[in-house]
């Protein structure tokens, strides 16, 4: 009984330690090289950023955003196209934010106002956004040489701005979920939609807010990812949504919303990072990485269910 209790409270930490040790042993200690640890963080910044946004979306009642990976590609593509045509880096960044907000607002309006299922809306928008991004890229890979952009988002020497962006995104999610009155409303809506609505919580406003927040974070993730690589190509971000969703569920966020802590999500993102990095060091092909990620996604939800054994709202 005691072991079960301990596992229930700390299963994330236990899983993290076990998986880190597993990949540490498999890679013969290479995982713990300073370079690899820095890499681990830099290559998985997007997981932290997108997972923070996804967390808020899922909290509002199991709403998800499958399109964020494609949106990263689209936002990056538009910014790079603009800078290629001589637009100033600062303007491009503003445009990126605008697009993120617009995408989020459209999602939020369709899901909040019309009560459309988020899975269908974002699946459809994933297809739309990916199509537009490919049209803008025209099959080419774009690169960037704008100084401001690279300074702000790149990983060259100097002050690590990218770290600030990650920190800001996570802190914003912490503030919203832990301290802001809005956060209480989000939890209430996810916990029991009917009573939340009856007690006067504006559902449309909250879902709009969650998706606009997600859109802003998608724009930030686009900046950080494209800044690090310096290029945008077709196919960028295909598994990003999956990573973010998996991080949330590993972190113990309830699939139907209303339950979960940002600390768990951060832990989940870290775990996803270790898994991503460990698999890359092992030289596993992307295909097998996808298989493993798919299994992890189900296992994460399943373990949450088995450890809590709480009645779900679904029948």
């Amino acid at each position: 009984m005691k072991i079960r209790e301990f596992l229930r409270n700390n299963y994330l930490f236990v899983a993290f330690v076990l998986i880190t040790i597993l990949f540490g042993v498999l890679s013969e200690g290479k995982l713990f090289y300073a370079g690899n640890i820095l890499n681990l963080f830099q290559q998985n910044m997007y997981v932290f950023i997108l997972a923070s946004g996804m967390f808020i979306c899922i909290l509002t009642g199991g709403n998800t955003d499958l399109s964020c990976g494609s949106a990263v590609c689209l936002i990056g593509a538009i910014a790079f196209r603009m800078m290629e045509n001589g637009t100033d880096g600062a303007v491009a960044i503003l445009v990126m934010l605008m697009i993120g907000i617009i995408i989020g607002a459209i999602h939020g309006y369709l899901i909040g106002r019309f009560r459309l299922p988020s899975i269908i809306v974002t699946l459809a928008s994933m297809s739309i956004i990916r199509g537009i991004a490919n049209l803008i890229l025209g099959g080419y890979t774009l690169s960037v040489d704008d100084e401001i952009y690279l300074k702000l988002f790149g990983i060259s020497k100097g002050f690590p701005f990218y770290f600030v962006f990650v920190l800001l995104s996570v802190m914003a999610a912490v503030y919203i979920s832990e301290f802001a009155p809005l956060g209480k409303h989000i939890y209430a809506l996810g916990g029991n939609r009917h009573s939340a609505r009856t007690s006067g919580i504006n559902e449309i406003k909250i879902i709009m807010f969650a998706y606009i927040f997600m859109g802003i974070l998608t724009a930030i993730a686009a900046g950080v990812v494209t800044g690090r690589m310096g290029i945008v190509g077709p196919g960028l971000g295909e598994t990003y949504a999956m990573d973010a969703i998996a991080a949330c569920f590993i972190g113990g966020v309830s699939v139907s919303g209303g339950k979960g802590k940002i600390s768990g999500v951060i832990m989940g993102a870290l775990l996803m990072g270790v898994i991503n990095q460990g698999m890359s060091i092992q030289g596993l092909s992307v295909n097998y990485q996808n298989v493993i990620k798919g299994i992890i996604l189900v296992l994460a939800v399943l373990s949450g269910y088995l450890l809590n054994r709480e009645g779900d709202k679904r029948l």
Binding site: M242, G294, I295
Partner: peptide, 8 residues
């Protein structure tokens, strides 16, 4: 997860 795993 099936979408991801079976394609892979």
């Amino acid at each position: 997860s099936g979408y991801l795993a079976f394609r892979g």
